[in-house]
Design a protein around this nucleic acid. Structure first.
Length: 584
RNA sequence: GGGGUAGUAGUUCAGCUGGUUAGAACGCCGGCCUGUCAAGCCGGAGGUCGCGGGUUCGAGUCCCGUCUAUCCCGCCA
């Protein structure tokens, strides 16, 4: 009775006069007294059903949207005037002989066909209903397709997918771990993996020279529109490779995914940008190259001006935009507020009027200096310059974010265009002022550049790494490195990071031991799979490509997680919950 | 931890400088209707204005606090 001969999206002229059974949801209902139209829907499409027999009409009058029904009937050609070009089955309709009501739906708390017409709070609470929405279903189908392409592509290249533990050891470096208390070992905890980093390197030591996995990872940090606490990586590692080998493979993989899933051709090889250049030209290590608008050092000119706020500052950077007509005083003020909200002292500006500058801080620059600026930066007539100065790289960072904001304002972000870029030559370490020690920029297993080995002890801050990120349209889509495969070097890196011998031994001893038993040179990369799917779907929110996402406070509104647990459960784990001061 | 935005019917919103009984659309319930496809027409039900304080003769509206969602900064090796 509830079986179906066809889905709701496949009937067409070739099926005319056949007897069919369709099952699905009542998408909409149009009652006309002696005839009722029902659009029946499943994930494949919609089909119009006709009820014109008395007993069926009685039954049909009791239906409402989202009831689940099954109908048997005959496929009928629609006359020309009644063809519906908007749906795949629009040339036919099914005249019902039988109508079975399989399930009655309550009125819905969220509309299904218009996702915008409902707050996210509601949509997440009733996510299973929102997932009836076609766009969201299409996103999940695209996600599936991308995963299939990855598995096929890598399998053909002799990679094998191996699962790694989800309950692992907590390590001190990196993001905050999600922790799982042990029942058997009171007072001890497992950590959920931030990535399977050490396991995949151990596979290389095992001789499983090409590994990959599509795997959930967990980081207990605050969320963003492109960041969830649990997320999926395409993780891969290979032996006997150097940077170009990994880059070639990854470029092949990415172009294959975009071709097969979206039928988009991306040119190879991808451009390569050093970390240093990326920061100086775009103020970020994840530049969006769909638009140009590069940052320029302005220090040379600001130092000569009478503008005291900028004089002698270490970083003064300038961004020029061609058409100043988009920038009313109100818009400039908004950009200024934005720059201030993210840490700048302010956003200075000047407009180019032929050979001279006007408005904003232009009065602090004499005419001679003004024309030098115009010719030096080849400023176009009617362009506008935005300038930020600071004694730290914050100036670059903020102007980089202003650049992104302006691009959004000017609609320069076309989601059907994909501009990948490799970011390379990262520093190996950065100085952590709070902890007064060096920390890894990537992770502590990243190899230093061969040419920088001598500087490792004398000036660690100058050492570059064999790390690489791939950025597409301003999203960090993948990151990886060539790893250290020498135990002494690995130990040395931990020592430079001022991790005590005991801690190295406790946390990483097993791993450094493993490196001693014949470790091939190896390297790899991990993709943020959710972000990749975001790009494929043309959306800018990670929740739109995850079936059951978390909110920005890391809770699940539908099932209400996280939740409190019973005394019994706590007792099993030998855990007591501390009372807040206010509660006492 | 910090900043911005939002919270009024099942849903999305309106509600002016504080002033009778808080409105609309969609949805829901009842009725009419043989060609609609966001069907149409008539009628009806539906509200602790997120929560807690305060100011006031009077608060959806003003003030303070708080919660939730969202965007951003910090954070995310």
């Amino acid at each position: 009775m509830s079986s179906r001969t066809h889905n709701c999206g496949e009937l067409n002229k070739t099926h005319i006069n056949s007897s069919v059974t369709l099952s699905g949801w009542v998408n909409s209902l149009r009652t006309h007294g002696k005839i009722i139209f029902i659009d029946i829907r499943d994930r494949y499409g919609k089909t119009q059903i006709i009820l014109d027999k008395k007993d069926l009409i009685n039954k049909g009058n009791s239906l409402s949207n989202e009831d689940v029904i099954s109908i048997c009937g005959k496929v009928n050609a629609r006359t020309k005037d009644f063809v519906n070009k908007d749906i795949s089955t629009g040339e036919i309709e099914v005249i019902a002989n039988e109508l079975h009501i399989l399930s009655i739906s309550n009125p819905l708390p969220v509309p299904i066909h218009d996702r915008e017409a409902s707050t996210e709070e509601h949509r997440l609470k009733y996510r299973y209903l929102e997932l009836r929405n076609k766009t969201l279903q299409d996103n999940l189908i695209k996600r599936h397709n991308a995963a299939q392409v990855v598995r096929n592509f890598l399998s053909k290249k002799d990679f094998i997918e191996i699962e790694t533990p989800v309950l692992m050891k907590s390590t001190p470096e990196g993001a905050r771990d999600y922790l799982v208390p042990s029942r058997i070992h009171h007072g001890k905890f497992y950590a959920l993996p931030q990535s399977p980093q050490m396991y995949k390197q151990l596979f290389m030591i095992s001789g499983l020279d090409k590994y990959f996995q599509i795997v959930k990872c967990f980081r207990d940090e605050d969320l963003r529109s492109d960041r969830q606490p649990e997320f999926t990586q395409i993780d891969l590692e290979m032996s006997f490779v150097d940077e170009p080998d990994v880059r070639n493979l990854v470029e092949d993989l990415i172009t294959t995914i975009f071709k097969k899933v979206n039928n988009v051709t991306i040119k190879k090889p991808f451009p390569i940008l050093s970390y240093h250049d990326s920061i100086n030209k775009y103020g970020t290590e994840k530049p969006d190259l769909r638009y140009k608008m590069e940052l320029n050092s302005f220090k040379e000119f600001s130092d000569q001006s009478d503008f005291k706020s900028f004089k002698g500052l270490k970083y003064v950077t300038m961004l020029s935009v061609d058409d100043s007509s988009h920038f009313s005083r109100k818009i400039i003020d908004e950009l200024d507020d934005y720059a201030k909200s993210i840490g700048a002292k302010g956003l200075a500006w000047m407009k180019c009027n032929g050979k001279n500058l006007e408005g904003g801080i232009s009065k602090f620059f004499n005419k001679n200096l003004q024309s030098k600026i115009v010719s030096n930066y080849k400023l176009k007539n009617d362009s506008i310059c935005f300038i930020i100065g600071d004694n730290s790289q914050l100036a670059l960072k903020v102007l980089g974010l202003v650049r992104t904001k302006i691009a959004q304002m000017l609609n320069l972000c076309d989601n059907t265009i994909f501009k990948p870029v490799w970011i390379v030559d990262f520093p190996l370490f950065e100085w952590d002022e709070d902890q007064k020690r060096f920390e890894s920029v990537n992770h502590p297993f990243t190899a230093p550049k061969d040419s920088d080995m001598e500087k490792l002890l004398s000036s660690p801050e100058e050492v570059l790494s064999k790390g690489y990120d791939i950025v597409i349209n301003g999203y960090e889509v993948a990151g990886g490195s060539i790893r250290i495969h020498d135990d002494k070097m690995q130990k040395q890196i931990f020592e430079i990071m001022n991790i005590t011998k005991k801690e190295i031994n406790d946390k990483f001893g097993f791993f450094i031991d493993a490196l001693k038993f014949g470790t091939p040179p190896h390297g790899g990369i991990a993709f943020g799979f959710d972000r990749l799917v975001m790009l494929l779907c043309g959306v800018n929110n990670i929740r739109d490509v995850i079936a059951f996402p978390k909110t920005t406070s890391a809770s699940a509104l539908m099932e209400d997680a996280p939740n409190t647990i019973s005394e019994t459960q706590l007792n099993d784990l030998n855990i007591t919950i501390k009372k807040n001061e206010e509660d006492v």
